[in-house]
């Protein structure tokens, strides 16, 4: 079955897997619908489950360039959309002044000169002096692109409002130049860590994908793709160990990226299997808070024995 939506979704899953991104059917469905309906995807989920990586992989898979916009407080249109090249503009006015005689050459009287001046083509606000930033670049790109708007929850509310026009119509209005429409609609991926609730208006315009922590099967597959040199039994042990850590009440639960880091650490240490001492010594790769480490240390022996069994 290669045709129809099911086939397309399978194709996305396999294609992503080739780029070492193992995804759930839910995720592939979201990507398929985003390309089909030409709608942005808003991706939410705990940190480290591969939200940003999704955009990287999508750009590899669709062979389109990735434009990344990292959001932060205070980000505004001059850094995200476009900016005028002030320096050049100022120089231009200087040149213009010197050339004025030529422009007005021979005109007699104030009225004549003024008419000449008005007829003169003004390029002060024009494409030449426009410095485009990621959002505008994504719209003007000839071949289409993947636009990643990372951690949109870190930006201010005004910036969200700015995004509305771009995301629903794929166009921006530049007051001095008019409306710029996308030549090829980019695939837009927004990520959020939920540090602030995203506005409803923005949510309405997007498909919404929640990436949870992976289940045992998926995590094993991911680990297999990302750290192929690890042997199967250690991999299984490691995954069930991490899975049981996630059941504890911790400040920050270990995500996939931490599991991968940990697997790489164990390989560096030449570990053949997981024993309590090793697990304890390398716990700081997996957990990022001292309180968490203390909680987990107590539980290690139980986890190891159940992971081995």
């Amino acid at each position: 079955m290669t045709k129809g939506p099911e086939g397309q979704i399978k194709k996305i899953m396999n294609g992503f897997a080739k780029h070492k991104y193992i995804c759930s059917e839910q995720l592939a469905t979201a990507v398929y619908l985003a390309t089909k309906l030409e709608k942005p995807i808003l991706v939410e989920g705990p940190p480290g489950v591969g939200k940003t990586e999704l955009a990287n992989t999508a750009s590899l898979f669709y062979k389109k360039s990735l434009l990344r916009l990292q959001c932060y407080e205070g980000l505004d249109e001059s850094k995200s959309l476009y900016e005028w090249r002030y320096g050049k503009q100022l120089l231009y006015t200087q040149i213009l002044k010197e050339q004025m005689q030529e422009v007005l050459g021979g005109a007699k009287g104030l009225k004549n000169s003024l008419n000449r001046l008005l007829k003169f083509e003004d390029i002060f606000f024009s494409e030449e002096f426009l410095e485009s930033r990621p959002l505008l670049q994504a719209l003007t790109s000839e071949k289409g692109s993947v636009l990643l708007i990372d951690e949109v929850d870190k930006s201010d509310e005004e910036f969200e409002a700015l995004l509305l026009e771009i995301l629903s119509e794929f166009q921006v209005s530049i007051p001095e130049l008019g409306v710029r429409k996308a030549k090829v609609k980019p695939l837009v991926i927004l990520t959020s860590n939920n540090s602030r609730e995203i506005g409803d208006a923005l949510k309405r315009r997007c498909l919404h994908l929640y990436i949870p922590f992976p289940d045992v099967k998926l995590e094993r597959k991911i680990l297999e793709a990302r750290v192929p040199e690890i042997n199967a039994s250690l991999r299984n042990q490691l995954v069930s160990y991490v899975q049981s850590i996630r059941t504890l009440d911790l400040k920050k639960l270990p995500a996939i990226s931490e599991t991968i880091d940990w697997a790489k650490t164990l390989i560096l240490l030449n570990a053949k299997e997981l024993d309590p001492q090793l697990a304890k010594d390398t716990l700081n790769v997996l957990l990022k808070y001292q309180q968490d480490i203390e909680i987990v240390t107590k539980e290690i022996p139980g986890f190891i024995s159940s992971a081995a069994g």
């Binding site: 939506p5 979704i9 059917e25 469905t29 619908l33 939410e44 949510k203 309405r204 498909l207 919404h208």
Partner: peptide, 18 residues
């Protein structure tokens, strides 16, 4: 036709929080 696919697809279009 495919109920599972339908569920997955509507799940990205309609609900917007966890």
């Amino acid at each position: 036709a495919n109920k599972k696919l339908l569920k997955r697809s509507l799940a990205v279009a309609l609900p917007k929080t966890l």
